[in-house]
Amino acid sequence: MTDLLIDVGNSRTKWILAEDGHVRGAARAVGHDDLVPLYDEWAALRAAPQRVRGVSVGGGEAVAAIDQWITDHWGLAPQWLQTPALGGGIRVAYADPGQLGTDRWLAMVGARAADYLPACIVDCGSAITLDVVDSQGRHQGGLILPGLSAQQAGLASVAPRLPTVDLATKTPFLTNNTHDALASGYLHGTAMALQGLIRRAMAASTERLTPLFTGGDATLIARYLDMDVRLRPDLVLEGLASIP
Rank of each mutant, 00 (worst) to 15 (best):
L4S: 04
D7H: 03
V8C: 14
N10V: 13
T13P: 07
L17A: 08
V23H: 02
G25A: 12
A29V: 10
V30Y: 00
H32L: 06
D34N: 08
L35K: 02
P37C: 13
A43C: 06
R46D: 09
A48I: 02
R51C: 11
V52Q: 03
V52E: 04
V52S: 09
G59K: 07
D67H: 15
D67A: 15
W69C: 05
I70T: 15
H73I: 12
H73K: 10
W74P: 00
G75V: 01
L76Q: 07
Q79W: 00
T83A: 14
T83N: 07
G87V: 06
G89S: 03
I90S: 12
V92D: 03
Y94V: 13
D96I: 10
P97T: 14
L100P: 01
V109C: 07
G110N: 12
A114L: 15
A119R: 01
I121E: 06
D123W: 06
G125H: 01
G125Y: 04
G125R: 04
S126V: 07
D131R: 14
D134S: 07
H139M: 02
L143S: 14
A150K: 03
Q152W: 09
Q152V: 02
A153P: 08
A153C: 02
A159I: 02
D166F: 07
D166W: 03
L167V: 10
K170V: 07
K170Y: 03
T171P: 11
T171N: 10
N176S: 10
N177L: 05
D180G: 01
S184M: 13
H188G: 06
H188A: 04
A191V: 09
A191G: 03
M192N: 01
R199E: 10
A201K: 00
S205A: 13
T210N: 09
G216N: 01
L220V: 14
L220F: 14
A222R: 05
D228V: 12
L231P: 02
L231E: 07
L235G: 09
V236A: 14
L237M: 06
E238C: 12
S242E: 00
